[in-house]
């Protein structure tokens, strides 16, 4: 790891000013991903801005939504009373990720900012357009078992590794982004981007901006019937092969509304709107779940080692819906 300059920020403006001024500076909060990337030489910021002294840890009810500060710890959010009560899906997704030690360090903002776990991204001797634009995608014709089946290009077939983000995408959350001059609010699903032609950028954050909060609308009836199903190579402490966030607003056996998102399949949390629309007003039957799952798989494309995802993904969607409906 290169040595770097370390500063503690006392105000938000302090952070965004420094980020604007200094392109080599990076925010550090929990550090669970960034420190690892620095150890491997994948990231080499010359300045780290420690933002842990900022008051961005609160989780509070506001009018029509719950606001979660960017520095709220993953473990705290997972067990927060408001979250458990209103968004059990988010709680479950958080608890499916990493380990308790990591959740005790990792923040909501950091979770959103974590980079892909693609092996070619991590090994600095390998080609990777995300780490080193123009070198090619190592995974495209390499070992790509964990990789994308939706929205990928030959520039990059990496997936976003977060569980929390899949739940937030399903819950119609928004992201509050601040710069020194202004604050903007965007849909969570617009925060992360597809690889496109510039896979080095994971998201739509601009220089000089930082995430300050996530807001989740609470005017929904999804809490009763929701689940996060994560399929992986071992039963815990592993990234998803496929994960599904499923939430149903039910009236007896009928589905008023459905929310579905998938992880482990794309460069961003993958919202399944076609399947959601199909389920609207339908009966909660296995057959309908299977049809919804099949619709969700339109445009899926597999690579050499992840062909199984074309079966595992719809099976997991149907299974998640079944679990959610039965609750």
């Amino acid at each position: 790891m290169i040595n770097f300059n370390y500063v503690q920020a006392s105000t938000q403006k302090n952070v965004t000013d420094t980020l604007m001024k200094d392109g080599t500076a990076q925010i550090i909060a929990g550090g669970t991903n960034l420190v690892d990337l620095m150890k491997r030489g994948v990231a080499a910021p010359q300045k780290l801005i420690d933002i842990n002294n900022l008051s961005l840890k609160n989780i509070e009810q506001q009018k029509g939504f719950v606001r979660i500060g960017a520095l709220a710890l993953n473990s705290v959010v997972a067990e927060n009373e408001l979250v458990v009560q209103k968004f059990p899906l988010l709680s479950k997704a958080l608890q499916s990720g990493a380990s308790q030690q990591l959740r005790n360090m990792a923040t909501v903002g950091g979770n959103m900012m974590q980079r892909t776990r693609c092996s070619y991204f991590y090994d600095t001797t390998m080609p990777c357009n995300k780490r080193n634009p123009g070198t090619g995608c190592g995974a495209l014709k390499g070992y790509n078992r964990m990789h994308a089946i939706f929205g990928a290009t030959e520039n990059c077939i990496a997936v976003h590794p977060s569980d929390m983000c899949v739940a937030l995408a399903a819950l119609n959350a928004s992201v509050i982004i601040s710069s020194s001059r202004s604050e903007r609010k965007i849909a969570f699903t617009d925060f992360h981007k597809l690889a496109g032609t510039n896979p080095e950028k994971d998201n739509t954050l601009q220089r000089g901006e930082m995430i300050t909060a996530v807001e989740i609308p609470d005017a929904n009836n999804f809490a009763q019937h929701s689940t996060y199903l994560k399929i992986r190579d071992r039963s815990s402490y592993a990234f998803a092969l496929i994960s599904v966030a499923a939430a149903l607003d039910m009236n007896g056996g009928k589905i008023n509304n459905a929310r579905l998102a998938m992880g482990g399949v794309a460069h961003k949390p993958w919202r399944l709107t076609t399947a959601e629309n199909f389920l609207k007003g339908k009966a909660a039957t296995e057959e309908n779940f299977k049809q919804a799952a099949a619709l969700a798989m339109k445009d899926a494309k597999a690579y050499r080692h992840n062909n199984f995802k074309l079966t595992l993904a719809p099976n997991s969607i149907a299974e998640a819906l079944k679990i959610a409906a039965a609750m």
Partner: peptide, 29 residues
């Protein structure tokens, strides 16, 4: 070190470069 990926800029930082960059930073201003 870097056979497959010739131009990985992130790795090559000597003390000198560190300090040159550092001159611009407030902490070592």
């Amino acid at each position: 070190m870097n056979d497959n990926n010739k131009d990985d800029k992130t790795l090559n930082h000597s003390r000198r470069q560190f300090f040159k960059i550092s001159t611009a930073l407030t902490a070592v201003a």
